[in-house]
Design a protein around this nucleic acid. Structure first.
Lengths: 147, 147
DNA sequence: TAAGTATATTATAATAACTACTATGTACTA
DNA sequence: TAGTACATAGTAGTTATTATAATATACTTA
């Protein structure tokens, strides 16, 4: 058995934040961690039809809320449509393409200094997130081709 | 007549972005510019009952979309509930208090350098917005008092 | 200045994304 | 191996928003 990539112990992660281990939570958290991307509640629900055909939509929402409250995943509200969720790994931010609506991660080398502002207004910062809107590479190329 | 504060010429602003001047658009844009804060479509709708009792909810949404597309106002999706809108003045960002849910503006002195990342991934940045979550001054005090 | 037309508005219906509710089921406790 | 606190499923309800279609109006141009 090769251990190049260490499989995360999902039940252990759930226990560590005080959540009961259920097949539904295990499967949903596993899916979010395995797939690197962003996904909506509905996408998760539809994906789970294979392995958990009795899974209820409300369980998906309840689970996403529990995982989110526990800090294991992050909810991204961006553009139109449904909230997206991703595994809360290294701090990262998001770019959304206003043409194709696709969402891209990005990582900041130098983080903006928010401490000054926070001190001025006595705001206790828990987290911050940068949303960038623009046009992705593929859509830029497409626009040039059309022109 | 004192001209200390120059009144914005709303019809002129609308024309300048190619929008027809209607009483509804005039009133809505005026309200958003006059009031400095953030407001939801529903808040605008209810406020307008006095001056435009026949105003329809869909007109509020249509108008907000037109104004937003034209870059005159900005839509803020943050936390739960409805989108908020504000006049798109100097670039600024937002802090939301996770306790009282209130939204605060803040202005960055040094803007984060996103150009490097944009160049790397060939993303054409149109705008960016920093969302900060945390606890506001008032709520921090309240928590200390209770303790 | 008065049609004409493209666009805006209204009112209502429809939709999407979620939340509330309650009966049933199950993970953990002792 | 109960007992119980919590989770799930299924359905109904809610909220915010969008679509539709008939009527009305802002702006154009003759």
């Amino acid at each position: 058995m090769d251990h190049d990539i260490k499989e995360p112990d999902i039940p252990e992660i759930l226990k560590s934040v005080g959540l009961r281990v259920t097949p539904q939570r295990d499967a949903i958290l596993r899916h979010i961690i395995d797939r690197k991307g962003h996904m909506s509640a509905d996408q998760i629900y539809r994906f789970m039809q294979g392995s958990l055909p009795n899974l209820s939509v409300s369980t998906v929402y309840n689970t996403l809320k529990s995982l989110s409250d526990a800090g294991l995943i992050r909810e991204i509200k961006f553009g139109d449509g449904a909230s997206l969720f991703d595994a809360n790994r290294e701090p990262h931010h998001h770019m959304v393409c206003t043409v194709c609506k696709e969402l891209f991660d990005f990582y900041l080398l130098a983080t903006p200094d928010l401490t000054q502002i926070a001190q001025q207004v006595h705001f206790h910062i828990e987290e911050y997130h940068i949303q960038v809107k623009g046009i992705c590479d593929a859509c830029q190329r497409r626009m040039i081709d059309v022109k």
